[in-house]
Design a protein around this nucleic acid. Structure first.
Lengths: 339, 339
DNA sequence: CCGCGGACCGTAAACGTTTTCGGAAAAAAA
DNA sequence: TTTTTTTCCGAAAACGTTTACGGTCCGCGG
C-alpha cells in the first residue's frame, strides 16, 4: 500500500469544502445541500475514490472481518464449507480472512493470534487433530471476539457450535447394512482425539446394540484416513478367522482404499462384503462399485456457521447454541443386496 | 470488535510513561532504558496486549493483506493452490483475504473493489470464465496495488503471471497416446474463453502435426467440464462412423465420466480406446481402470505466485515476468498397451 | 565552572476516517 | 424589524498506532 491515491482530504480541498462535509455527502448522513452532495459524489466517482477501510474500522470499532481457521482446505468437505461461508460473507459485506492450521495446534494458535491482532469481528473454527488446550480460545473470547465452532469441536467451550449429526449418520449407515442382512460388521475407526470419529464409532455401537448384535472388538480397526493406513486396516480385516459381511468406514477415502484392496484380493463387493463410507466425496460415485455413503451437508454447515456468527456479532449476543445438521444416506452399488 | 480490550495508552497510564516509550519498548526501536523496557514488556504480556493491526497499517502504509480471488475453491486444483499460498503467506506474516468469483465477472469485480477498499498490499487472481473486461484490473494497478495472475490469465495485462505449461502437458498427453499406436485421437475441448482450454487444444493439434496425423475436426468435441456435458460428448463420440482409438480429455472429471459411459456401453478401456485426462484429480487413481493423466503442480503454483507477489511488494517492482511450471505425465491403466 | 555528549523520554504530528457540537446564514414567523 | 427556526457546514475530537524532534538530566573533560 503505497501512499493512498485519493483521500477524503483531497476531495475536500478540490471542492473547497471540509472533510466533514465530504464524509457526510458520501455516507448520506446528516444534512448536506443537494447540490453539494452531488458535486462530491461526482468527483468521488471521477477520481475512483474509495474510503480507507482501516481508517473506518478504527473509528467504527468493527472490521467486518471474519477469521476462518480450518485444519486443511485440502478436503472436499472443508472446501464446501469454505464455499458456503464466503457466499454468506459476501451477502453481508464481510471479509473472510483464511487460515490453515495444517493439523497442528501451533499454527492454529498463531493464526488465532493474528486474527485477534487484526481485530477480526468473529472467528469460525474447526480444530486441528492436535488441539487439546483451550487457553487460546479463552483469550479470544476474553477479547470480546465471538467464536463459532463447526464440524470439529473442542469440548467445554461456551460458544455456538454448528455440527453434523455424525452419530445419527453412522447409525443410519450401519442399520442400512443390517437391513441388508449383514451381521458381522466391521468398522474402520478414525482417530479418537476427533469428536467426529468418536461420534461415528458411537453410532456404530448404538446400531449394533439396537439390533442386539454383540460387539466384537476385533472388528473395530483403527484407521487414520490415509490411504496406507486404510490398506493395513483392510489387511487386518482379511486376516480375521471369519471375514465380515459388512464394513462401515469412517470416511470415503478409507472405504475406497478398502474396496480397491478387497477387489485385488478376490473379495467381491457387495456380494461378499458390503461397504458404506462417510462424506459423499466426489470419488465415491466414480469407483466401481460406486460407494454407498453418508452425505454431510458441508456447504450448508458453512452457510449456517457464518450466518449465526454474523448474527451474533450484530446482536452482540453469544447464543451458545448447538445446531445439528442432518446427514443423508446415499445408497449405491457397494451395499446392494441383489445384483 | 467491541472497544479494544487493552491499548498502548492503557499500558502507558499504568506504567506512568508516555505512549511513545511503550511503543518504542515493544518495537525495540529507539533508546529506552533496559529496566523500563522490561517493565513494559512484562505488563504487555500480562495483560495480553496485542497492537491494533489497523492502526499500525494506517501509519505504516501497508496492510500485509494479500487478496486472493479464484473462480471457485470447489476444485482440487484451486484448493491446492490456495494451500500453497497460505503456507507461504504464513511464513512471511501476511494475511490472506479469500474471495470467490463463482465464475461470474460481477462478483469478481466486487471482490476486487473490496480488496482495494481494504488496501490489500497485493492481489492474486485467477479469472472467471466470464471475464473479458480489463478495466477493473487497470484500476487496481493504478491504485498502486500489484497483481499476480495465476492459472487462468486475462491477456494483455502487464503483470507477472504464474502458469502451468498446459501446451506442453497436452502435447505430452497426446504423444503418449500416439506412442501407444493411437491414430484416431479425439479431444474433449474446454470452453474457448479460457486460456487453459485453448492451450490444451493447441497442444493436441501440435502433437498431431508433429506426427503427421491429419486433423479430423469431427474428433474435437466441445465439453464444459460438467458431468452431463461429458456424457453428451461421449455419446457423440460413440456415434462416429469409426470409433476413435484414443481420447484426450480437457480434464479428469470429463475423462472419468467418459470412461464410465464407455464401460456401460461395452467399449473397453484401454483395449478399444485409450484415455488420458488432465489434472491428476484424486479420483483419477480410484476409478477402474485408473486414469492416465497430466499432473499440474497446483500447490507449487500457489507457493510461487504468493512468493513472487510478496517479493514484488517488498521491492516495489513489477517484474512483469511469466513463470511457467512443468507438468508431469502419470501413466496408469487407462492407456496401457498390453494388458 | 562551563560546556558537551549521551541516555532516556515526552510532545505532537501524522495516518484517513466518522461524528458531535455548535455557528453562520437564510428563511420563516412574529 | 426582531425573533425563531431551519438548513447547511466547519472545527475538532476520537480511534490506536509510529516516529521525528526536542528537552532534561547526568557524567565527564577541560
Amino acid at each position: 500500500m503505497s501512499k493512498q491515491v485519493v483521500t477524503i482530504k483531497e476531495l475536500a480541498q478540490r471542492l473547497n469544502v471540509s472533510i466533514a462535509t465530504v464524509s457526510r455527502a458520501l455516507r448520506n448522513s446528516g444534512d448536506v445541500n443537494r447540490e453539494t452532495r452531488e458535486r462530491v459524489v461526482r468527483l468521488a466517482a471521477e477520481l475512483h475514490y474509495s474510503p480507507n477501510y482501516f481508517a473506518q474500522s478504527l473509528v467504527k470499532q468493527q472490521t467486518k472481518i471474519i477469521g476462518v481457521v480450518v485444519p486443511t482446505i485440502y478436503s472436499h468437505y472443508f472446501s464446501q464449507a469454505l464455499c458456503g461461508m464466503t457466499d454468506v460473507a459476501n451477502e453481508h459485506d464481510y471479509y473472510v480472512m483464511f487460515c490453515q492450521s495444517n493439523e497442528t495446534s501451533g499454527l492454529e494458535r498463531k493464526s488465532m493470534e493474528k486474527l485477534v491482532a487484526c481485530h477480526a469481528d468473529g472467528l469460525l473454527i474447526s480444530i486441528s487433530k492436535e488441539t487439546k488446550d483451550r487457553s487460546m480460545f479463552d483469550e479470544v473470547l476474553s477479547n470480546g471476539i465471538p467464536i463459532v465452532q463447526f464440524d470439529r469441536i473442542l469440548p467445554g467451550l461456551q460458544v455456538t457450535k454448528v455440527i453434523v449429526d455424525e452419530f445419527e449418520g453412522a447409525l443410519k449407515a450401519v442399520e442400512h447394512l443390517i437391513a441388508r442382512k449383514c451381521r458381522r460388521i466391521a468398522h474402520f475407526a478414525g482417530p479418537m482425539e476427533l469428536s467426529v470419529s468418536v461420534n461415528r464409532l458411537n453410532g456404530y455401537l448404538e446400531a449394533l446394540k439396537k439390533h442386539r448384535i454383540p460387539v466384537d472388538k476385533s472388528l473395530i480397526i483403527p484407521c487414520n484416513s490415509f490411504e496406507d493406513d486404510a490398506q493395513t486396516a483392510t489387511k487386518k480385516l482379511m486376516h480375521l478367522k471369519v471375514l465380515p459381511d459388512g464394513l462401515f468406514a469412517v470416511n470415503d477415502l478409507s472405504a475406497i482404499a478398502a474396496i480397491q484392496y478387497l477387489k485385488k484380493h478376490g473379495v467381491r463387493v457387495p456380494q461378499d462384503i458390503k461397504v458404506v463410507g462417510f462424506n459423499d466425496d466426489p470419488a465415491s460415485r466414480l469407483i466401481d462399485p460406486t460407494l454407498t455413503t453418508i452425505m454431510q451437508p458441508g456447504y450448508e454447515v458453512g452457510k449456517l456457521a457464518m450466518g449465526v456468527l454474523i448474527d451474533e456479532i450484530k446482536n452482540k449476543k453469544n447464543k451458545n447454541q448447538v445446531f445439528k445438521l442432518r446427514t443423508k444416506l446415499i445408497a449405491r452399488e457397494s451395499s446392494r443386496s441383489r445384483i
